[in-house]
């Protein structure tokens, strides 16, 4: 594991972060930024509407995520769903496996109800701390989904082996389910058991899509540019390695070595080049 950045890693960080900061600035100055339609996020409104029509409660979980960027991205969606629940006087349950995440989700839901001027309707029992043990949490979640006959279940966050248990619980009672995870191993399970699945970075885009906050939309455009940088780096790597295979004398270095070279090694190499 890399504990300290090498010069090449610092250059990559700058290449990835600079476009994000630039487009955030552009968006704040009023630039129009297009966001493509994401069916899974559009489905959030449908899912909430259907649950409200059926008179069944909503459920939102962040899985086994600890406090971090993933949970922060999920809280934006929770706030949106919380506002909808407050507006339509629908019950919402937030089963949690991490007490710190529960505290953050509590404040987020309170804010959502305040925004809708419905704070008196806020029920602290909406937050359910189940267990920080993976399968105890899954068992508790299953129980809530079945007992409360949830109409719409939102699974946003990090999941592991319990993902299919959670998704099947909603499937069994006919709840409309929207899942979003950045854990690629769990995506197939959600695809088969949920109605809509947001894959990877779409989870992070959900907040921008729902709020249209210029900072988030600008960041989204910056992320696209950063991905273009990755694409061109991949292309560069393919070309260099191909040339190296055919003409080894032309490329006397390995790209993987460049990534781990220290400041001193770079100085020595540049000195040699000059």
């Amino acid at each position: 594991m890399m504990e300290h950045a090498t010069p090449a890693v610092i250059v990559l960080i700058v290449l990835f972060v600079a476009p994000v900061l630039y487009f955030i600035r552009q968006a704040k100055q009023g630039a129009e930024i297009f966001i493509r339609r994401i069916a899974g996020i559009d489905a959030i409104d449908d899912a909430v509407g259907r649950a409200v029509e059926l008179g069944r409660p909503l459920s939102f979980t962040t899985g086994i995520s600890g406090v971090g960027p993933v949970v922060y991205a999920c809280l934006g969606v929770l706030r949106y769903i919380g506002r909808k629940a407050a507006r339509y006087a629908s019950h919402i349950f937030v089963p949690c496996s991490d007490a710190r995440v529960m505290a953050l989700a509590d404040v987020t839901l309170q804010s959502a109800y305040r925004d809708e001027r419905k704070f008196t309707n806020y029920n602290p029992a909406a937050l359910r701390f189940l267990s920080d043990e993976q399968f105890a949490y899954a068992s508790g979640y299953q129980g809530i989904i079945h007992r409360e006959n949830v109409g719409a279940a939102f699974l946003f966050g990090s999941f592991a082996a319990e993902s299919l248990i959670l998704a099947e619980a909603g499937q069994q009672i006919g709840a409309i389910q929207v899942a979003a995870t950045a854990s690629p191993e769990q995506i197939p399970f959600f695809l088969t058991a949920c109605d809509y699945t947001l894959i990877g970075e779409e989870l992070f885009a959900a907040g921008a899509y729902l709020s249209r906050d210029p900072v988030q939309t600008g960041s989204l455009r910056g992320q696209d540019i950063a991905k273009c940088v990755i694409f061109f780096l991949c292309l560069f790597g393919i070309v260099v390695e191909s040339v190296k295979t055919i003409y080894p004398a032309i490329v006397p270095f390995a790209i993987s070595d460049l990534m781990v070279m220290s400041w001193r090694e770079w100085a020595a190499k540049l000195h040699w080049l000059l």
Binding site: V17, P184, E201
Partner: peptide, 12 residues
């Protein structure tokens, strides 16, 4: 998927 999620996590 990893690349996209990692970039989005970095931006977040």
């Amino acid at each position: 998927v990893y690349f996209g999620a990692a970039i989005a996590g970095l931006a977040m």
